[in-house]
Nucleic acid binder design. Structure first.
Length: 823
RNA sequence: GGGCCCGUGGUCUAGUGGUUAUGACAACGCCCUUACAAGGCGUGGAUCACCGGUUCAAAUCCGGUCGGGCCCA
């Protein structure tokens, strides 16, 4: 036996790491994977989801990312000029909390500039960990052009977009109910609210109607009676129908408002809850907000920004909400107005990070208008190709629910600042010029800023001319919701503002890959922006993957104790280390999972092969190893086997003579490859990888290799050309899934790497459909013959008598006779 | 409470109207055959969650029930 040029007996995680390290330290990296907009090739820009650095990277996200890399690599293989950017999302409340926790000091006790500096330092440490994991899982991003969402360039784009939309009238200021965390002193988004169960007091209070009739109303928020806008009963509730239309007197002292409200019917009232009469206050819960809006009631401001009662609460003014509640109960008790008090477990909305009870209060905030543009957005969405098509529904469903504008201002610090200043009389605003990054809380408006009327947005002139007429200008201290930044990512990576010539070619952005859990935020807001700003769909393709779940189908979370850290899977098998994971099962018991070797190539192969895109996927390291490491071993050994035979000089031109079995397998291979090419074009990772896996671990080694073995050992040129041509082209087509594996094999055997192929291997080399039609017969005949040998107690390489070759395989008589030693 | 998605051998999975329902892992049996025992070959094993309907024909379409998941309230 000739010495194989692939010396390793099998693929290992250590080998993988060696190749990977060489790959990323190679000075040719940028040439290989960098974006060159002037190459003349079709441009394919991927709007990579910029990860938020927070210590460890979630395995489900890493799995999704590795599939985005498969798309990037497969599009390069198809000859496109791919921009696979590497961005990091660094704005937001998470890093603020991390810094507060690390130093044991609340944000507002710092100087704003010092705090921002601390955040920047801390997030940089986390960012480096993300970069390392990105490389470990084999991402072929353009790391040299890394972008950070807290950079001057990125924030300048966010601010410019704000200014443009403001001037267009698409951004407005308004006083509306918002969810507010009085401890962190900021507005928060719905997505940041969590519900926890707490024991609270349900107080039944005696009210009186204008006629003196006693009515009992149950509430957990008696301190909000002062902000009561209306009292409601269910329309079908006969007990109270005689009260409807009457006035009812508030049982507490109030200031600066009427001391009575009307009684109406409303379908949202639950008759069986308490007495069946509901007081609607601004704002006890989301239902109150809905009722106020629906009935056009003017809300009262009962709680201020410090979480204290306002003057309408009369004697409660200035008290913290909790103290006010105790106080009002006490005074009602003294007046004999308490019917009863029950301790009840109740869901309380709290802020996700601080666990502080949140309030819904009226705040003057900035909003992006969105309700007027839904139909136009839907028209644009119709032009986008969704993969898989059914996941488009998540977006359409969410859009059905849009009934209010998007609040975009936050009272935090480590975010992009709202780029606006107010004149001393507050009637005019100053807006920074496009392309600059400004910090209005500590800067004057820059030269080139515009002055506009605050209400009408009429352009009044330039800041440089008018600055002396505006009095003392005050910079906005609020910042943007982080989605305001994130939803520019496609514009930013496609060259908006910074590279207009590239933008012309690259927009709509070729691909938005993302998880389905952020359809209603990231995808929706991005599409909203492209409709408002450019009246175009934001993307050509949107690829929406499912979520990574634990082995039992539950979402991974800290509280369930079922999380798996990405690095433990990627490093499993390196330097002989095995992996072991303790995960809580569905019955609450710990289950120990163990694996010996996984690594990035096996992990990627698993994700590519195991489920259709868009479905939630269960992550079980044991299963990943069991099902897919063997596939790598198999493919590696086919290549290793091939590596002992000399590579023919000219693999690119088909030899004039090829044996029939070689023409057969080449035809099968051509069919497989055209399927793969089609699937790569359609972003169908699953089908492409399945086709390659089935060919490479099935028909090729089990059937053809067994036929060709003897000839290969005898130095047959036809067989040698066939196996090498197949291995070389197979690895090119397979390289998007397992780049380092393919790279190692092809650069060892053929002096050129599969990852550098920029044109899909040509097919057909030989494509004879008559031969493909015989594939089933061939496989059946082989299986039947092996079975007969087994039944006769013969070893597979023993001669056997009395087997006749089926008539349709008559052309294969010699081959099959030799292969099975038929006599 | 509302919306959406899903339910296929022990486990995971393919399959959106048409032969005997795909494949993988696990199980079992045989084999160290000059690439591979971290292999190979073979064998079992599923009334496609349940009930009803449409149809010549249903895993597939429709309605309902049950179970799981995600999102929202």
């Amino acid at each position: 036996m000739a010495k194989p040029r692939l010396p390793e007996k099998r693929w290992t995680v250590d080998l993988e790491k060696r190749i990977q390290e060489a790959h990323y330290s190679d000075s040719g990296y940028d040439l290989r994977y960098g974006f060159n907009p002037d190459s003349g090739k079709e441009i394919f820009v991927i709007d990579t989801p910029p990860p938020y650095p927070s210590g460890t990277w979630h395995i489900g996200a890493v799995a999704q990312y590795s599939m985005i890399d498969v798309i990037a690599r497969s599009q390069r293989l198809l000859g496109k000029e791919v921009f696979f950017p590497w961005g990091v999302d660094r704005n937001g409340i998470n890093i603020e909390f991390t810094v507060e926790k690390k130093h044991g000091k609340k944000m507002r006790t710092y100087d704003r500039g010092d705090f921002i500096h601390l955040c920047r330092e801390t997030i940089e440490e986390f960012t480096q960990a993300m970069r390392d994991t990105a490389a470990r899982v084999g991402l072929s991003c353009d790391f040299a052009r890394e972008y950070l969402t807290d950079s001057t360039e990125y924030r300048a784009v966010t601010q410019s977009i704000f200014s443009k939309l403001f001037k267009m009238g698409e951004i407005i200021e308004d006083l509306r109910p918002n969810i507010y965390d009085p401890v962190e002193k900021t507005t928060i988004a719905d997505a940041e609210v969590e519900r926890i169960n707490r024991i609270s007091k349900l107080v039944d209070i005696k009210w009186q109607t204008e006629d003196g009739e006693e009515v009992i109303i149950s509430t957990t928020r008696p301190e909000l009676i002062c902000a009561c806008g209306i009292v409601a009963v269910h329309p079908d509730d006969d007990r109270y129908s005689h009260l409807v239309g009457k006035k009812i007197i508030l049982p507490v002292e109030v200031e600066g408002r009427d001391n009575f409200v009307n009684i109406v019917t409303h379908p949202s009232v639950k008759s069986e809850f308490g007495s069946g009469v509901l007081m609607v206050c601004s704002f006890g819960d989301q239902n109150d907000v809905a009722v106020f809006r629906e009935l056009g009631l003017k809300p009262f401001q009962a709680i201020d920004l410090d979480g204290c009662m306002t003057s309408i609460s009369g004697p409660l003014t200035g008290m913290k909400v909790k103290d006010a509640r105790e106080s009002v109960i006490e005074s009602l008790e003294q007046q004999g107005r308490i019917h009863q008090i029950q301790e009840k477990e109740q869901e309380v909305p709290v802020s996700e990070r601080g666990k502080n009870p949140v309030e819904t209060i009226l705040l003057k905030e900035w909003y992006v208008r969105q309700t007027h543009i839904q139909e136009r957005m839907k028209e644009h969405i119709e032009e986008i190709n969704f993969v898989p098509p059914r996941n488009k529904q998540f977006l359409l469903d969410w859009m059905q629910n849009i009934s209010i504008d998007w609040p975009i201002s936050r009272r935090r610090w480590y975010h992009t600042e709202i780029p606006i200043w107010y004149s001393e009389d507050e009637s005019k605003v100053i807006v920074a010029p496009s392309g600059t990054y400004v910090q209005p809380w500590r800067e004057e408006p820059p030269s080139g800023s515009d002055v506009l009327d605050r209400e009408s947005r009429e352009m009044l002139g330039s800041w440089d001319e008018l600055k002396d007429d505006l009095g003392k200008v005050v910079g906005e201290s609020k910042v943007f919701d982080t989605w305001m930044d994130s939803s520019n990512s496609n514009l930013f990576v496609s060259g908006y503002l910074n590279q207009p010539d590239v933008f012309d070619k690259a927009f709509p952005t070729s691909l938005r890959p993302q998880g389905k859990e952020i359809v209603r935020t990231w995808l929706y807001y991005t599409l909203l922006k492209s409709t408002l700003l450019l009246d175009k769909p934001g993307f050509s393709n949107v690829w929406i993957d499912g979520l990574g779940m634990d082995p039992w189908g539950r979402k991974m979370s800290k509280s369930l104790g079922n999380g798996i850290d990405a690095d433990t899977v990627l490093e499993c098998g390196a330097s002989g280390r095995t992996g072991s994971w303790k995960i809580k099962g569905t019955d609450g018991k710990q289950v120990q999972l163990k694996a010996n070797k996984i690594g990035s190539e096996c992990f990627r192969l698993w994700k590519a092969c195991d489920a259709q895109v868009g479905d939630d996927f269960h992550i079980n390291p044991e299963e990943i190893e069991a099902k897919y490491f063997g596939v790598l071993t198999k493919l590696f050994n086919v290549a290793r086997f091939a590596s002992q035979f000399e590579v023919p000089d000219d693999l690119d031109s088909t030899p004039s003579h090829l044996n029939i079995e070689d023409r057969w397998i080449l035809s099968e291979f051509s069919m497989c490859m055209s399927q793969v090419q089609e699937n790569w074009s359609a972003l169908d990772i699953y089908s492409a990888t399945q086709a390659l896996k089935n060919f490479g671990t099935g028909i090729l080694p089990s059937h053809w290799l067994e036929m060709a073995k003897t000839r290969l050992y005898d130095g047959d040129q036809s067989a040698a050309w066939t196996i090498h041509r197949i291995v070389r082209d197979f690895m090119a087509a397979f390289s998007p899934v397992c780049p380092f594996f393919s790279h190692h094999i092809t650069s060892t055997l053929y002096e050129s790497s599969a990852v550098d192929v920029r044109k899909f291997p040509e097919t057909p080399i030989v494509c004879d459909s008559d031969l493909c039609a015989l594939s089933n017969s061939i496989q059946e005949f082989n299986s039947a013959t092996w079975k007969q040998k087994k039944d006769a107690g013969l070893s597979l390489n023993a001669p056997i008598e009395g087997i006749s070759i089926p008539t349709d395989l008559v052309d294969f008589t010699d081959v099959l006779t030799a292969m099975h030693k038929l006599e």
